[in-house]
Amino acid sequence: MHPPTGAAPPAGRRERAEAASDPLRYRLSALSQRPEARRLFGAAVALLLVYYAASKSLEIGDRSLLVLLNGLTSAGLYFLMASGFTLVFGLARVTNLAHGGIYLLGGYAALSVQRATDNWLAATALGALFAGGVSVVLYQVLRLLRGDGLRETMLTLGATIVIADQVLAKWGGIPTDLDPPSFLRGSIDLPGSALLYPKFRLAVVALALLAGLVLWVLLYRTRLGMLIRAGVDDPDMVSILGIRVPLVLGSVFVLAGALAGIAGAAGGTYLSLAQGEDNRILLASLIVVIAGGLGSLRGAGAASVIVGLVEAFAQTHHPVLSVLITFGMLIAILALRPHGLMGGADHARL
């Protein structure tokens, strides 16, 4: 590959020697050092992938619309989970592996409320509240460890197991689900085709968009949001300025827990609640968060859409390889951008 004219300095002796001894490595490093070449390469790969996806999608005709919507639905659920996870990581530097457990707890709490009141919205609200409460209790316990990252992670892992056992004892192991609110029951006809799409799934996408909007307003238009952003950038400076960082951290934990609780209620409605769901959703949100860049909210948003769409596409066209493709995509993203799509080198950018 020839370097673009004018951009490259003449190759020195050392460089030439490198090129001779290990041509592939030299070319790769040359590639990574020249932004134009990198962009060109990236664009070519992206073009190929888009071409492949489009040709595959044309094969199945209007069902591609289903695949697209399925991907967006998954993306919605992933975003609800990943946004809280990434906020907590960005601010508290805690890898909260109990996030899946809190999802399950929020879902089951909502189930209990729905059985008592037969009201989905109230159930979801109370489930979110409960999950937020559990999350802040977890935060208080984490504070005892005073920022010892490894032990904090182990503690959250332990909390997952405790939560799963408590759920099993309280709600039993038989899989179950919530009923959607009456106005979201059933399916709608997709325009221009004979296909059906469940109303509630579309509502999940709307819910995720709403959550994204609320988060944006909170982070960029309120004082608390300002503190959170400042805390992510430079926690020491923020505390020196006399701001009670624990309070800010606590509110982020509540927020993350509540989002997980909402996700639990939504997932428990269009999917189901059962033992093991906590780990499944945790794995999915970990992929999203890592691909998006730990601590980056915009990254979580972008990555959840990418992961959702790729997953839906792979499950449709290469069902046996679908898990492999999802992880392969994560590897590819990390190979090109080691800190994720929008992760910073040493600190995260919201």
């Binding site: 069902r63 289903l66 695949v67 399925n70 639905t73 499950q315």
Partner: peptide
Amino acid sequence: RIWVPLGTQDYSSFVAQ
């Protein structure tokens, strides 16, 4: 013959096939 991974939550993409 459609094969889905054990423990799949979301069957929408498989139903579409």
